[in-house]
Simulated assay, not measured.
Amino acid sequence: MTSVSVVVPTRGGARTLPLLLTSLREQTHPDWEAVVVVDGDVDGSADLVAREARDLPVRTLVLPENRGRSAALNAGFSLAEGDVLVRSDDDLGFGPAHLARHAAHHEAAAAPIGLVGLCRNVYPDGGSYARAYGVPTDARFRAAAYAAPADRTWRYWAANVSVTSETWRTIGPYDESYRAYGWEDVDWGYRLRRAGIPVEIHADVEAEHHGAAATTEDRALRAFYSGAARQHFLRTHDLGDGAALLGDTGAGDGLWGRAVLSVAAITDERRLRRLGDVVDRINRALPRPAAEKLVALLVEGAAVAGHRAGRTAGAI
Results as ranks from 00 to 15, higher is better:
T2W: 00
S3M: 10
V6D: 00
V8A: 05
T10R: 04
T10K: 03
R11M: 10
A14R: 05
R15V: 04
P18F: 13
L20T: 14
L21Q: 06
L21N: 03
L21T: 03
L24K: 06
L24V: 15
R25P: 03
Q27T: 08
Q27V: 07
H29I: 02
D31A: 15
W32P: 06
V35K: 11
V38F: 04
V38G: 09
D43W: 12
S45C: 11
D47K: 15
V62A: 11
V62W: 10
E65A: 15
N66A: 15
N66S: 10
R67M: 05
A71S: 15
A75T: 10
G76F: 09
A80K: 04
A80S: 08
D83M: 11
L92S: 15
F94R: 12
G95D: 11
G95I: 10
G95N: 09
H98E: 02
L99W: 02
H102F: 13
H102G: 04
A103M: 13
H106V: 13
E107V: 12
A111S: 15
P112A: 06
G114H: 07
L115N: 02
G117M: 04
G117T: 05
C119V: 06
R120Y: 01
N121D: 13
Y123E: 01
P124R: 14
G126D: 10
R131T: 11
A132G: 07
R140Y: 05
A145P: 09
Y146P: 02
A150S: 01
T153A: 08
A158T: 12
A158Y: 12
V163I: 15
E166M: 01
W168I: 00
R169S: 14
R169V: 01
I171V: 03
I171N: 04
Y174L: 07
Y178A: 13
W183G: 04
E184D: 14
G189T: 03
Y190Q: 10
R191M: 11
R193H: 02
R193M: 13
E200C: 13
A207N: 03
E208P: 05
E208R: 14
H209S: 00
G211R: 11
A214Y: 06
T216H: 13
E217C: 07
A220T: 01
R222W: 10
A223Y: 02
A223N: 08
A228I: 08
Q231N: 14
Q231D: 09
H232F: 05
L234Q: 06
R235Q: 09
R235P: 08
L239N: 05
A244P: 02
A244H: 05
L245W: 08
L245E: 12
G247D: 02
G250P: 03
L255D: 10
L255W: 10
R258H: 03
R258D: 07
A259F: 05
I266Q: 07
D268S: 09
E269S: 10
R270H: 09
R271I: 02
R274K: 03
R274C: 04
D280A: 10
E292S: 09
E292I: 02
A296E: 06
V299M: 03
E300H: 08
E300A: 15
V304I: 09
G306F: 07
R308Q: 08
I316G: 11
